[in-house]
Write a protein that binds this DNA or RNA. Structure first.
Lengths: 339, 339
DNA sequence: ACGTGCGGTGGGAACGCTCTCACGCCCGTC
DNA sequence: GACGGGCGTGAGAGCGTTCCCACCGCACGT
């Protein structure tokens, strides 16, 4: 009785087979839910499995199947720092995580910090340690998605990738969101509408500015632009500049709620009432927007939805299906007190 | 020339060996940096490796080494939702991620949502898909850490685990942090000091209340307690209750910055000036604390440091070293305007 | 000149699984 | 009553590594 069920390493298929009095192949069939197994045998095997506490060894399985059932989510490290107090970061992770869990896949998180980590990520993906890669919110024209895609690794980007690499992506409708914001300001009678744009090396920054410009141009208004980097402080700085550039402005579309928060603080410091003197519309609809004074009118983007959709597309792609080049999620105007 | 270097699957050790005119074993030695390889041979092998673009197959490697070089970070799903606008979540992830990257290990993120996912996590860890597990901020006495540890999986908890399972953990010094906060209030001449505690099924909630009580008892003051759940709204509700319970209170220690934010709003609504009438000290030192009106005096806890330390301990544990049962990180009083 | 020891190398087994293929059995059919 | 066709099962060959062990030469000591 020395060979009891006591933890002498995890049991293998072989041992389960022996215990159940069948062959390895049959146990494998049961484990993988093959229909061609007689009912009594299947029952016997299942009992053996649970008696022995058998859990398939993923490494062995991957070795032969060439799949790992896990996917990487790559986030630029600065994202986690700069955006740590809005909810993009946790939201995307949550969305992706949910979808992966539903599909019973693993989520490997890679924070791309240094340039060196690019190498690491490439090697990792190429080592076929993951079945696919999700890349979130890049700065500038990152070559990574293109490189990976070219090497045959399924890739889906979060946010339209800059550069000419044609990689499928999921994005929110930044252009239209910005237009909605500006239109709301116009509809409520504002005439000198400025904007605090996001960084112009990020799609979200670029597209929201584009939307602002388009909507303004359509109604023959002049654009007044300052650029921030999505942080609260940059919003404050940009607001000061705008007030200098055009003291008469009566509305601002700010490309992120965090920047809007900074901007409103400056407006109040300079004695402008919000929304009476200057109306403010943000973008993102982060939690904070509900709690600022005044509560922020903003454009809601489906953050969790973005993550979920990215995951869904990637799963399909890795499953061999063809997926659309782009999926664009709608935004929604949320009217609160600031405009 | 049909067997060129063209992408016919990834090259294997065997192929590299052939290409370099040596044996598989030797290539393996080079790849793993064994010292017993003659210099010219090593050079030849390295050339072959780069020429063929060889990347070791992790599955095959794991199969024999019984290691995967990846670690799981388990987060209760609600964490990502409830705490999405403080920085605990991203901060811990960032800290863990950094340390893992430095050690060249992978980070597998598992969001423990439903109870069903507990099963999934257990199976996953037991399948030896990871070399160790990090469990962050549990609610109540979660059996998971104990179970895993008992099965021989290296586990480190973030936050002292409730329940009797003796699992090594890393935590911030909640008790002392709370004492620092209360002491500061006492030192600045406050006498009726209330507290808004966190949920009493979480260590952070319990310990911060303990610290408050201890410090107050040491100076013979009465404690006035309301309980929230770390969310902003619960802070507001608790504040209202405190004002009813004791309209004379002149200070509040709030167990999280988010709740402090809600509390301050209520104080202002009810016409109390902060800090003149009522001083407020928070806990966490999240980004927001710097931007509220008035800026929040609070207890800073090293969030990134928590993640990093957890990772460090886990890596050592998985490496076979013995690690301390607990590591407690210091907190620090940050005086701003609210107290 | 011939053992002895050691640094360096190659061969082979093993890791735990999947999957193809061949085999045995039972049933239906002529 | 013999034969063909399924269906269910088992045997075996890998998948790409690592690691143990055997081997080979060379320098050294006797």
């Amino acid at each position: 009785m020395t060979n009891g069920t006591v933890a002498m390493g995890r049991p293998t298929l072989e041992q389960v087979a022996q215990h159940a009095g069948v062959s390895r192949a049959t146990v494998s069939r049961v484990v993988n839910g093959s229909p061609t197994v007689a009912e009594p045998i299947r029952a016997a095997v299942e009992r053996a499995i649970s008696e022995l506490g058998y859990v398939p060894n993923q490494a062995a399985r991957s070795l032969v199947t060439q799949r790992t059932d896990s996917f990487a989510l790559i986030l630029p490290e600065w994202t986690t720092r700069v955006f740590s107090d809005d909810q993009l970061f946790p939201g995307v992770i949550r969305g992706v995580g949910q979808e992966m869990e539903a599909a019973d896949k693993q989520l490997v998180l890679m924070l791309a910090g240094s340039a060196a980590s690019h190498d690491r990520i490439e090697r990792y993906a190429l080592a076929r340690h993951v079945d696919g890669v999700l890349i979130a919110s890049m700065h500038g024209a990152d070559p990574l998605p293109g490189t990976l895609a070219r090497m045959g690794v399924p890739v889906v980007c979060g946010g339209r990738p800059l550069g000419r690499a044609r990689v499928p992506y999921v994005d929110v409708d930044n252009v239209n969101g910005a237009r909605q914001a500006v239109r709301h300001l116009l509809d409520t009678g504002r005439s000198r509408i400025a904007t605090i744009a996001g960084p112009q090396d990020m799609v979200a920054g670029i597209d929201r500015l584009t939307g602002y410009r388009e909507e303004l141009r359509d109604s023959d208004r002049r654009s007044i632009v300052a650029v921030g980097d999505f942080t609260r402080d940059s919003g404050a700085v940009a607001m000061k500049q705008l007030l200098q550039d055009d003291p008469q402005l009566d509305a601002v579309f700010v490309a992120s709620d965090l920047m809007a928060n900074g901007a409103i603080r400056v407006l109040r410091e300079q004695g402008r009432r919000v929304p009476d003197d200057v109306a403010v519309v943000g973008f993102d609809d982060i939690e904070l927007a509900r709690y600022t004074e005044p509560a922020l009118t903003t454009i809601r983007q489906p953050i969790d939805g973005l993550g979920r959709e990215m995951a869904r597309q990637l799963l399909r792609l890795a499953g061999g299906e063809t997926i659309p080049d782009q999926v664009v999620l709608p935004t929604e105007l949320v009217v609160r007190a600031s405009a």
